[in-house]
Each structure stands twice: as structure tokens, then as C-alpha cells.
């Protein structure tokens, strides 16, 4: 019984997270969530407390997915350039990003300016992402792929910012080859 409940909760949270990802915090109502996961209002409030609490859980879940993907993509046996190219190509082409954008960016724009707690969560996710870029670049410096002169801390900050820019550009209906060109210039900054 206990196990069953846990399983359902995870699935419901995943669905809720995708709803916030699609529509943002202000564009998602408790009614939308209840309809999506198919439970009674009472069960919703018992399980997730309220809209704000389930949003925080959804944001953390989204963050852990994104960070897991980023760590796997940026830190492995391939060269730094191969990893960065794959990462940014994915950002430019993954259908979920093109249609829904990114929940972190949505949250930065919609919620974080008025909410220090949420801003803190976003900040931690972005800091973690920057350490993956940093590790990827550091390995590149160790193997001689990247010049020792390069300020890789600044490059890491730039790559995090460029990720946001690229995902937003993907939402402005620009052509695929134009996106590819942006990716090439972004990656070229490591040379």
C-alpha cells in the first residue's frame, strides 16, 4: 500500500512538473493540475499541500532532470568541444525546449523577481550547471585542447547565459540552420 502511494505520487508530480513547464506558474491553476493528474481536490491538498508547494517540488524535480542530463553530456570521455557541441545542439533541437522552453527560464522571468526562496533554488541549479561547464573546460585545459590562458570561469558563466539565450532564440521561430550558426559561434569561444 505504502509503495503504491509513493509510486502514484512520483507520477503525479512528474505530470504536474510538465504542466508548469508548459504553462508557467501563473498560467497553471490547481484545477488544471487536478484535471491532469486525475485526483480529487481533497487528495491534491493532502498530497501536495498547495499550488506553491507543488510548484517548488516541480521546479526541484525539473532541476534534477536538467542537471543529470547536463552532467552526463558535459563530463565524460569525449573531448570538451564534442561535449559542448552536443550540449548546445541539443538545446537548439530538443522538441520539448522548442515548444515549451525551459522551466528555469520561465521561473526566472515570472516568479523569481518577487520570490527570494524561488530565486535561491534557481541560483543553486545554475551554479551547479556552471560547475559542469567548468569541469568540462578544465579537462580540456589539462589535455591541451584549450589554451591555459583562457579564463574558464568566465567561459562557464558565458555558457550558462548562452544556454538561456539559445533556448529563447529557439522560441522565436528562427530557422534550423540559423540556430546551427549560433551554436557554432557559441562553441568557438573556447578556441
Amino acid at each position: 500500500m505504502g509503495r503504491n502511494l509513493t509510486f502514484d505520487r512520483d507520477e503525479a508530480l512528474e505530470k504536474t512538473m510538465r504542466l508548469f513547464w508548459e504553462n508557467g506558474y501563473n498560467g497553471t491553476s490547481v484545477q488544471n493540475i487536478i484535471d491532469e493528474i486525475g485526483i480529487k481536490p481533497g487528495s491534491f491538498y493532502n498530497t501536495f499541500n498547495d499550488k506553491y508547494s507543488v510548484f517548488i517540488e516541480s521546479l526541484n524535480l525539473y532541476g534534477s532532470h536538467v542537471l543529470e542530463y547536463s552532467r552526463d553530456t558535459l563530463i565524460n570521455d569525449q573531448t570538451c568541444k564534442e561535449n559542448l557541441t552536443k550540449f548546445f545542439n541539443d538545446m537548439a533541437t530538443i522538441p520539448d525546449f522548442k515548444s515549451k522552453g525551459c522551466l528555469i527560464i520561465k521561473t526566472i522571468v515570472e516568479v523569481a523577481p518577487k520570490d527570494k526562496h524561488v530565486l535561491g533554488i534557481v541560483h543553486n541549479i545554475l551554479s551547479e550547471l556552471k560547475t559542469y561547464f567548468y569541469e568540462c573546460l578544465k579537462k580540456g585545459q589539462e589535455t591541451g585542447e584549450i589554451s591555459k590562458e583562457k579564463d574558464i570561469k568566465a567561459l562557464s558563466s558565458f555558457y550558462a547565459s548562452a544556454t538561456d539565450g539559445l533556448i529563447l532564440s529557439g522560441k522565436t521561430k528562427i530557422k534550423k540552420d540559423e540556430m546551427n550558426n549560433i551554436v557554432k559561434v557559441i562553441v568557438s569561444t573556447m578556441d
Binding site: 526566472i108 534557481v122 541560483h123 550558462a160
Partner: peptide, 10 residues
Amino acid sequence: HGLLVTGKAN
């Protein structure tokens, strides 16, 4: 775009 979002994220 990226810089504006980064600035918004404090």
C-alpha cells in the same frame, strides 16, 4: 536574450 535572463536571475 541570455544576458537579460542572467541579469534577471540576480
